[in-house]
Design a protein around this nucleic acid. Structure first.
Length: 831
RNA sequence: GCGAGAGUGGCGGAAUUGGUAGACGCGCUGGUCUUAGGAACCAGUAUCUCUGAUGUGUGGGUUCGAGUCCCUCCUCUCGCACCA
């Protein structure tokens, strides 16, 4: 501003954005320190997978986070706002394979490129805390945690039917199977029996469920989804003695009140008792064939449609302990081994699946619960009756209501020793074994004499082999790399084999937010002091697509970390904002649709601030954002208008009179609007981060500024008021368009840096309107509008309304039945 | 099928506790300045049979008054889906 060079007529964002980014970097403006007197605030956006370049979804996500970070700094918080890379995963292997390179090289090059992109957006991260999860500096601590969890009995190994993706050549967790297909490649998954490592997330099922109620800062929707996923149900576990054998079959039901309506038993094809049951029945071959057939079918099964219910009599019977009735045992395709006990007492009268099954195989249907005012006749029923009612044909429980019968029946089972109440969860343990290369190695050793032995923590990290063991194929899975596998048993020092499974990449993202508190700590996974200072994350921001997977795993890990003594908190994210997708032409951006918008190109053309402003302005954050090229143009236009106003303001060089006597009406109007804007802007951000309406308020204030300083008007606002308005406008907009506001701040000649300002306060008195527009309605229809003093009394207001010409016309001498007066709003005259 | 959310101009979207429907922006129309303008600025912009009437997916209800509350139906989006 000291040199006399005239300002360009168009805001030249390129040098300006570069200048401020360099300045923030060299000053270390956003470095978070632990020793601060200010209250801490931890804002975090879901870190990206380094796929190559950022997309518009990232731009939106990180812009929202940056506004929160900068806003909270201006509000006087000690803000932690870090960024890192979710860097393990299959795409790196695929890319490496394709380009004959190494996954690490590919990954780190992507990170370098994407980091530069994020810096170009002017995001206020504390880059000193950055890390990539594929670095041994990170995953060695994950391996350490693995060992500690193993020690605590939270990790075990088992053989189960897993979801196998042929394309990815690996196992997937239940959560990673979406509509029967792989979440990453969309290929249909197949069941397969394999042994693998499991995290005992079910040990925390109850806490994961009950703590949801305390997450008041989370969207209802996400809480509900997690509740459903955990899927708690309470009921009766009960043993049915097999006739002629010492074994009993254990069942689980949520409808113990229907136990007298049991007419057969269904067990899963994988039920462990199956072989014992069929032995000696003469039906062995037929059953085995049937089971085989079902398994084949499941392999080919199209997940979209439910297969027809099928079953086969095993040749055995069991005894219903409640009425001593002998019922046939069937093996059936619709019984899941993974839920409950893998065996179901079948009550066709009151369960739709059992009903269909019974009709198909002409098994008896016995109604035992009558809903009020209904009569159930087995012969004519078309569907099962699932509503509660009064019990019939139920021995001593007849006459009881469903609800009371349930507890009475459970109690009966308990006291007679053949059953008890049982809580089951839909949630299963988290299978974390992946059979690939680019992941964190599981720190275990298989020894022929000692069995499975953990790698001692002082021997960590177990690093990924860097050199190819198999020529020209860098991405051979660990299981095909003899150099990695060969090791010595930590216990007996004999030759042994390393575990070749790697951990699911969701493990990395389950605790990265805690590591940000102390990313350079070298003694332990977490520095207890720093992590307890920063955690929990006050505001977490990311896509709703992670509502179950990542957020559930992170909650689980947080509880584990707490129990291992690393954290004080049991929940990782106090407040969660799930932002909507960025769409174009009504569809999600995708290469195949050809509707992808490239952030690089946009930033190049319009600058980071314009892109940021538009993505904040076009929709509230939780909703989908329709990308609109002309809308971006509009955002750019707004900044340019402000720019031109400020350079002309700066060029006028007029001395600022210290007067604030508001000699002119425009001064008063501008001053009032300014205070109203500060109030609205603050509310909009504080309640739900509605930046779109905040920005529109800022635009209104700017429009008022133009209007009240228009030279064509007889009177203009005084320079002191104008200056104060500009000053506050720049502070308000700073979190959204930081480069622009910083530059304008310096052009306008304000002292210090914008970073060091305080968020402006508003004055309720100054924001109050002297005059308000009152609507006059006759019979609820708007007939007129009048301007009155805002503090006018109800009586006077009513009088004014009746004096109004338009109102009089519509009253037209009719008798007035009622008058409703709402101060500062309206008068409704009913005739 | 179950659960959750959403339907407002040509478009994105605004509307404290029920109280001026359409803020702000885009687009469009007309104008000013210009050799020119896809620049900038000014004015207008829900619809119609226009002193008035009609308008927030449909149909009803409550109310002096409903985008907002209640019921019915329709459409769309998302999540779950043989969970006993």
């Amino acid at each position: 501003m000291n040199d006399s060079k005239p300002f360009p007529t168009k805001y030249d964002f390129k040098p300006v954005e570069k200048k401020w980014q360099d300045s923030w970097t060299s000053l270390g403006s956003y470095k978070a320190e632990e020793n601060s007197l200010k209250e801490k605030y931890y804002v975090l956006e879901m870190f990206p997978y380094p796929s190559g370049r950022i997309h518009m979804g990232h731009v939106r996500n990180y812009t929202i986070g940056d506004v929160v970070a900068r806003y909270k700094r201006l509000r006087g918080f000690n803000v932690l706002h870090p960024m890192g890379w979710d860097a393990f995963g299959l795409p790196a292997e695929n890319a490496a394979q394709k380009n004959n390179t190494h996954p690490a090289k590919w990954t780190y090059e992507n990170i370098d490129y994407m980091r530069a992109q994020l810096k170009q957006l002017g995001l206020s991260y504390d880059w000193s805390r950055e890390f990539a999860t594929c670095s041994p500096d990170y995953y060695r601590w994950e391996q350490q945690l693995f060992l500690e969890m193993y020690e605590k009995g939270l990790i075990y190994r088992k053989i189960t039917t897993v979801n196998w993706c042929n394309t990815c050549q690996t196992v997937l967790a239940n959560e990673q199977v979406i509509e029967g297909a792989c979440w990453r490649c969309d290929e249909l998954v197949h069941p397969r029996n394999m042994s693998g490592w499991f995290f005992k997330i079910t040990a925390y099922a109850e806490e994961l469920l009950s703590d949801l109620d305390a997450l008041t800062g989370w969207p209802e929707k996400v809480v509900t989804m997690q509740k459903n996923w955990i899927g708690k149900s309470t009921g009766l576990r009960c043993d049915f003695q097999v006739a002629g054998l010492p074994e009993a079959i254990s069942i689980f039901t949520t409808r113990p009140d229907t136990v007298f309506g049991v007419t057969f038993m269904s067990i899963a094809t994988e039920h462990p008792l199956l072989e014992t049951l069929i032995a000696g029945t003469g039906r062995e071959e037929a059953i085995r064939l049937f089971v085989e057939e079902i398994h084949e079918e499941k392999l080919r099964q199209n997940i979209e449609e439910e297969p027809e219910k099928k079953g086969l009599f095993t040749g055995r019977y069991c005894i219903n302990p409640f009425n001593n009735e002998k019922i046939p045992i069937y093996v059936a395709n619709f019984v899941l081994m993974g839920y409950g006990t893998g065996a179901v007492m079948a009550v066709p009268a009151h369960d739709q699946r059992d009903f269909e099954f019974a009709r198909k195989y002409t098994l008896p249907i016995v109604p035992v619960v009558l809903p009020e005012g209904q009569i159930l006749q087995a012969q004519v029923m078309e569907t099962a009756s699932t509503i509660p009612g009064k019990l019939v044909n139920s021995g001593s429980f007849t006459g009881l209501d469903s609800v009371e019968a349930q507890s009475a029946i459970i109690e009966h089972a308990r006291s007679h020793g053949f059953g008890d109440s049982l809580v089951t969860y839909r949630l299963r343990d988290w299978g974390i074994s992946r059979q690939r290369y680019w992941g964190a190695p599981i720190p275990m050793v298989h020894c022929d004499s000692c069995g499975i032995v953990p790698v001692p923590s002082e021997k960590l990290p177990v690093t990924l082999p860097e050199d190819p063991d198999i020529s020209k194929n860098e991405c051979a899975p660990l299981s095909q790399r003899p150099g990695f596998i060969r090791t010595r048993c930590p216990r007996c020092d004999e030759e042994a084999r390393r575990e070749t499974d790697t951990m699911d990449t969701f493990v990395e993202s389950s605790w990265y937010f805690a590591r940000f508190a102390c990313s350079d700590y070298r003694q332990d996974p977490l520095d207890r002091k720093k992590s307890s200072y920063w955690l929990a994350v006050d505001q977490y921001i990311g896509g709703v697509e992670h509502a179950i997977l990542h957020l559930l795993y992170s909650r689980f890990f947080t509880k584990v970390l707490r129990d291992l003594g690393y954290l004080d908190v049991g929940e990782p994210f106090t407040n969660l904002l799930t932002q909507g997708m960025v769409i174009k032409d009504g569809a999600k951006m995708s290469k195949s649709k050809g509707n992808v918008v490239d952030p690089d190109q946009l930033i190049n053309q319009y600058g980071a601030d314009t892109v940021r402003l538009f993505s904040l302005f076009a929709a509230p954050p939780e909703r989908d954002l329709e990308w609109n090229a002309q809308g971006v143009e509009g955002a750019s236009r707004f900044l340019n208008r402000v720019y031109r106003y400020i350079i002309s303001f700066a060029e006028q060089q007029g001395g600022v009179a210290a007067q604030t006597d508001f000699a002119s009406e425009p001064s008063r109007a501008l001053h009032r609007k300014m205070h109203q804007t500060i109030r609205k802007f603050t509310f909009d951000i504080e309640n739900d981060f509605h930046f779109n309406t905040a920005i529109s308020a800022a635009m209104e204030l700017f429009n008022t500024l133009l209007l009240t300083t228009d030279e064509n008007n007889a009177e203009q606002a005084e320079r002191s008021v104008v200056m104060e308005t500009i000053r506050n406008l720049l502070v308000l907009l700073y979190p959204m368009v930081p480069h622009f506001c910083s530059e304008m701040w310096s052009i306008a000649g304000f002292a210090q840096s914008l970073d060091q300002q305080n968020w402006p306060a508003w004055d309720e008195d100054a924001a109050r309107e002297d005059l308000v527009t009152i609507v006059i309605q006759v019979n609820g229809k708007v007939r007129s509008r009048i301007e009155v003093e805002s503090d006018i009394s109800a009586e006077a207001l009513e009088k004014e309304a009746f004096a109004d010409e338009n109102a009089k016309r519509f009253i037209a001498g009719k008798p007035v039945k009622k008058v409703v007066v709402v101060q500062k709003k309206l008068v409704n005259i009913v005739v």
